[in-house]
Computed example of a mutant assay.
Amino acid sequence: MAARILVLGAGYSGLVAARLTARHRDARVTLVNASDRFVERVRLHQVATGQDVRTRPIAELLGGAPVEFVVGRVTAIDAERREAELADGRRLGYDTLVYALGSRSDVESVPGAAEHAFPLATADDAVRLRERLADNDAVTVVGGGLTGIESATELAETRPDLAVRLLTDGRLGAALSDRGRRHLRRVFDRLGVEVLEDARVAEVRADGVLLTGGEHVPAGTVVWTAGFRVPDLARQAGFAVDERGRMLVDAALRSVSHPEVYAIGDAAVMRRQGGQELRMACATGLPAARHVARAIRQGLGRRAPGPFRFRYVNQCVSLGRRDALVQYVRADDSPVEFVLTGRLAALYKEAIVRSALAAQRHPGLVALTPGGGPSRARVDLPG
């Protein structure tokens, strides 16, 4: 009898994991997602600025893969019965669970953010922000991570009539090399994006934000990219989680409390062999998905799954449509001074983003993901 493999979440990680696992003749794979459309999360800042970004049905990306696709919102997981419950009351059983529910914007940690800020983590978020910007002339982006940087530069380039400001609680581009930070500054200056460093937001108001030092920063629209939250389903189900609710996994990406469960993507705490936590990005999520599919197939063949081996290559940051920054890094994600910038970097980033989407149709392309790649597993991948 075929093993029941249940994959929760059809983002970058979950969709690839489902397709690859379904290649095993002894696996019966069911994929569950709240929407029937695949969201290119790395393009949401483009959607927010009114650019034409095509959305694709998940069924189209699955192609002819032998995967049962279920549209529904997961509301609970019964770890003892090995079932997931959907909002409409359906219950789906599993022998092996792949938990890939991703993350959403954290608008609960700062007063007023949920009421007045515009997050940018879902397709609905991007559309809502786009509609808001139609009648605005000043935008403040809160959050100096890659999402905030990409959003601020995209807004400034696409809408030169907007006054764009970026607030970061540290130094702009803190994770970049000196050359990377200098290029970032040049682009921000060219686009006219104002930067406030060491700016911690205490409250979001209808007319802007209040900083911890008491300063009021006015804004017609506040874009919120400062942190993410994960669903609380893993904690509620009794799986071992960290203080943020992300599932704790072992070297093979299995739950440390429930070995029949694998977790990948933003909703898991994935680490390198030395203990370093991997960043939340499809650069890690896609190789992790391939590893989990391989590990499940090994388990079906009565073999113990091996550890997830991974190294970083670069970080790719779009800075509008005509510029970008490709920051090359060591295996542990620390920056080196070599960077790629300008139009060539923009073309490189666009190619990487397209490859992340192409990997959903052709999972063998996961080696061409943005910013990272497998190490010892590389022999199994093209290119």
Rank of each mutant, 00 (worst) to 15 (best):
His116Gln: 02
Gly143Trp: 00
Val71Met: 02
Arg182Gly: 09
Ala117Cys: 08
Gly208Arg: 07
Ala152Ser: 14
Glu68Cys: 03
Arg190Trp: 09
Arg130Ala: 12
Ala84Gln: 02
Ala121Asn: 10
Leu184Lys: 08
Val142Thr: 08
Asp198Tyr: 01
Leu191Ser: 09
Glu108Trp: 11
Ala87Trp: 00
Glu108Ala: 15
Phe69Asp: 02
His183Cys: 09
His116Ile: 06
Ser109Phe: 07
Leu120Asn: 00
Asp135Val: 10
Arg82Asn: 03
Ala123Pro: 03
Val204Asn: 12
Asp88Met: 00
Leu211Asp: 04
Arg181Tyr: 08
Val139Asp: 01
Glu131Gln: 14
Val141His: 13
Ala163Gly: 09
Pro66Ser: 08
Asp169Phe: 02
Gly102Pro: 04
Glu85His: 03
Ala87Thr: 02
Thr153Val: 11
Val201Asp: 07
Val187Leu: 05
Arg132Ser: 07
Gly170Phe: 00
Val139Cys: 12
Ala175Tyr: 09
Arg190His: 15
Glu115Asn: 10
Arg90Gly: 01
Val74Tyr: 03
Val127Ser: 10
Leu172Cys: 13
Val110Gly: 02
Leu146Glu: 11
His116Tyr: 15
Val142Ala: 15
Val70Ile: 11
Gly173Trp: 06
Leu172Ser: 13
Val110Asp: 01
Thr122Asp: 04
Asp207Leu: 09
Ala175Gln: 09
Asp198Met: 02
Val71Gly: 02
Pro119Cys: 05
Ala152Trp: 00
Asn136Ala: 13
Glu203Cys: 04
Val187Asn: 08
Gly145Leu: 10
Arg205Asn: 06
Arg165Pro: 09
Ser105Met: 03
Arg132Glu: 04
Gly148Phe: 06
Glu154Ser: 14
Leu97Phe: 05
Leu166Trp: 09
Val195Ser: 11
Arg190Tyr: 09
Asp124Thr: 14
Asp106Trp: 10
Asp169Met: 07
Val193Asp: 13
Leu146Gly: 13
Val187Gly: 06
Asp207Ile: 03
Asp189Glu: 15
Asp135Ser: 14
Thr168Gly: 14
Thr158Met: 12
Gly148Cys: 11
Arg81His: 03
Asp135Pro: 06
Ala206Met: 09
Gly89His: 06
Asn136Lys: 07
Ala65Glu: 08
Asp106Cys: 11
Val193Tyr: 08
Glu68Met: 04
Leu167Trp: 02
Asp161Val: 05
Glu108Gln: 11
Glu194Val: 14
Leu120Phe: 13
Arg90Asp: 07
Asp161Tyr: 03
Leu184Gln: 01
Val164Ala: 10
Asp95Thr: 05
Val110Gln: 08
Ser103Tyr: 11
Asp135Ala: 15
Arg205Pro: 02
Ala65Leu: 08
Val209Arg: 08
Ala163Trp: 08
Pro111Leu: 09
Leu120Ser: 07
Glu68Trp: 03
Arg186Ser: 12
Leu196Thr: 15
Glu197Tyr: 03
Gly145Ala: 13
Pro66Ala: 12
Thr158Tyr: 01
Gly144Val: 05
Leu176Gln: 05
Ala126Arg: 10
Ser177Tyr: 06
Asp137Ile: 06
Arg82Glu: 08
